[in-house]
Amino acid sequence: MSSADQTTEVTRGQWLRALSALEPEKLTAQVAALTEEWQITPRSLPQSGLAMLKIRESAGGESFYLGEIPLTTTWLEIRDPDGGQAQGAAQIMADNLDLARALALCDGILAGKLIGHEIVRALVRQGWQRCQAEEQKRRAMLATTRVDFSLLDDVGESDGN
């Protein structure tokens, strides 16, 4: 399967991650241009604040708070000029209400296949490719530093590992 084929299967749970990999200013501007005359109403109050991170430690299995992250949330009802309707939401790790709104719009446009969903899907593909490139880089960090701590006697004088 080619990289392009893989990106067409990006699910709703991954749209946000993919779109977050794009430049925020460009994405915000593109979405604003696309939805200029649309009827957009907040389903809940957009908020910017913090979220506590709770993790499970692996020694005793207890949960504890590792710290906090910034969080901005937006949940919108969207109606396009053709009468198409959808709900879109976004939660992002940044203090950026404009970006959260743009991402929530993208979420709704894709979920409801509203006007311009092909454009947004192309953005998702573009972002997903960036995510994959980052993942490849991280895998390379592991692959290029894989180490074998076997005793020298076991491997001779080779430094291949």
């Binding site: 913090l50 709770k54 692996s58 969080l71 592991l142």
Partner: peptide, 30 residues
């Protein structure tokens, strides 16, 4: 700064086994 911001939520309990690793070593086992 954090003391000026509202708390919106807390995450579900996250499993660090899902970490996307960039380094991983053990001094117990080779």
């Amino acid at each position: 700064y954090r003391s000026t911001k509202p708390r919106l939520c807390e995450s579900p309990v996250l499993d660090t086994g899902a970490m996307r690793l960039v380094r991983r070593i053990s001094s117990a086992f080779k």
